[in-house]
């Protein structure tokens, strides 16, 4: 297979013209060859702008209930309840829990970034993903335009996972600082600093366990954090926590 032909095959696959067999062949090739996989990604990124041209549509009210039901259902039921879908390959049926748990938090964030933009609310997630570190509360932080910019997983042990959904444009010489108001009538308390653009887990001390409707926000502060120990800079994102339903 020459280079040229491969480029053409990748293009047609990304466009949606490849047959099922061809798509599987290319997918297998990506598995084996990271260079090919990277090339496919570049082609996808090239066309991704067209996805943005679709009419934004609001998601129906019962959407999350349906997702939750699907996640809770056994994989077999899933297939049956989706008569339009041909039986997926066996590999799709195998749920490897350990890696899924590791990835769960990140994917919770990603799933949210897609749908939360329409819903502007917090997701309900499936009981299949319960882990010892499951969040007590989840908050989606929105920027001034209402776009989700970060997801907060607040845990009972007072660790807080902050997942940024996009690279933030942090002003020069400043850092991102994460705040919460553990008491509605109390002052904001710093949970810690984020390296610019990096998601991380922060550990709060001497804080009560997070509760629903608790405020979380991220502000830009001078290097080293706010000098007053209260938010002083512009707000990057802000949101209120909800308790996930398990």
């Amino acid at each position: 297979m020459t280079q040229r032909a491969l480029e053409e095959r990748i293009d047609e696959w990304v466009l949606g013209l490849a047959s099922e067999a061809e798509a599987q062949a290319l997918e297998a090739l990506c598995e084996r060859d990271a260079e090919v996989a990277a090339r496919v990604e570049r082609v996808r990124a090239r066309f991704a702008a067209l996805d943005e041209t679709a009419e934004p549509l609001s998601i129906p009210a019962d959407f999350w209930d349906r997702i939750e039901a699907s996640l809770e259902g056994a994989p077999e039921e899933m297939t049956q309840s989706a008569p339009l879908e041909p039986a997926p390959p066996a590999s799709a049926e195998v749920i490897e829990l350990a890696p899924l748990r590791r990835a769960a938090t990140r994917w919770r964030a990603v799933a949210l970034s897609g749908v939360a933009a329409a819903l502007l609310m917090v997701a309900v997630l499936g009981a299949t993903l319960m882990t010892p570190t499951q969040p007590a509360v989840v908050a989606v932080l929105l920027d001034a335009q209402g776009q989700p910019v970060a997801v907060i997983d607040g845990r009972k042990d007072n660790t807080t996972l902050v997942t940024l959904l996009e690279a933030a444009n942090v002003p020069g010489g400043q850092v991102m600082q994460v705040w919460t108001k553990p008491r509605d009538d109390g002052p904001p308390v710093s949970l810690g600093l984020l390296d610019p653009g990096a998601s991380r887990t922060l550990s709060g001390e001497n804080l009560p366990p997070p509760h629903p409707d608790q405020l979380y926000e991220i502000t830009f502060e001078p290097s080293g954090g706010s000098p007053t120990n209260l938010p002083t800079g512009p707000i990057y994102g802000k949101g209120f926590a909800k308790s996930p339903v398990y």
Binding site: F63, I67, L71, P75, A82, L100, A104, R106, G114
Partner: peptide
């Protein structure tokens, strides 16, 4: 709607 919903579920299952 079905397609989006199934994509999310699939995303969960394939996250690893």
């Amino acid at each position: 709607e079905d397609a989006v919903q199934e994509s999310f579920v699939l995303t969960w299952r394939k996250a690893h």
